[in-house]
Simulated assay, not measured.
Amino acid sequence: MVAREAEVEADDGIDRAGAARPTRQRKIIHVDMDAFYASVEQRDDPSLRGKPLAVGGSAQRGVVAAASYEARAFGVRSAMPSVTAKRRCPDLLFVKPRFDVYKAVSLQIREIFAEHTDIIEPLSLDEAYLDVTENKQGITSATAIAEAIRRRIREVTGLTASAGVSYNKFLAKLASDHRKPDGLFVVTPAMGAAFVETLPVGRFHGVGPATVAKMERLGIHTGADLKAQSLAFLQERFGKIGPYYYGISRGIDERPVRANRIRKSVGAENTFSADLYTPDEMREALGPIIDKVWRHCEGAGTRGRTVTLKVKYADFRQITRALSSAAPVGSRAEIERAAFRLIDDLPADPRGVRLLGVTLSALTNETMSAPPPAQFALPL
Rank of each mutant, 00 (worst) to 15 (best):
E134T: 12
K310P: 00
V156R: 12
A19Q: 12
P181A: 10
G223T: 09
K27S: 13
A377F: 01
P122A: 07
D182T: 04
E111L: 07
N260M: 04
A163R: 10
A348G: 09
A38G: 11
R4N: 13
G242K: 04
T140S: 15
R72G: 07
V8G: 01
V64H: 02
K227Q: 13
K103G: 07
Y313I: 05
F272T: 04
K310Q: 02
D253E: 07
R303Y: 03
R88H: 15
V40H: 07
E127T: 11
R237D: 00
Q108Y: 01
N168G: 08
G206V: 12
V63K: 02
K180P: 12
K227S: 04
T143H: 14
D44T: 10
D349S: 06
Q375G: 04
G352P: 01
A3S: 09
Q42C: 00
M282L: 14
L346F: 05
V311Y: 01
V311M: 09
L286E: 11
A333M: 10
R341D: 15
A66G: 05
L309V: 02
T160V: 00
R98C: 12
I289L: 01
A38E: 07
S58F: 06
A300R: 12
G251Y: 11
V186H: 09
C297Y: 03
E334H: 08
D182A: 15
L123R: 14
A377K: 10
R295C: 07
M368A: 11
L184T: 13
P200S: 09
G301K: 10
G208C: 11
A322V: 00
D177H: 03
A362L: 08
R24I: 12
I335D: 00
R110G: 03
P347Y: 06
D253W: 00
R110W: 00
G57I: 08
L231C: 03
L378Q: 14
R77I: 02
M282C: 11
L355Y: 12
A144D: 13
A339I: 10
F272A: 08
P328S: 01
D45F: 05
S106Q: 00
G56R: 03
M191V: 14
G192T: 09
K136Y: 08
V31N: 04
R98N: 15
D118Y: 06
G57P: 03
I252C: 09
K264E: 05
R21E: 10
E254Q: 15
N270K: 14
A65S: 15
G13P: 03
F204I: 08
S176C: 06
I28L: 03
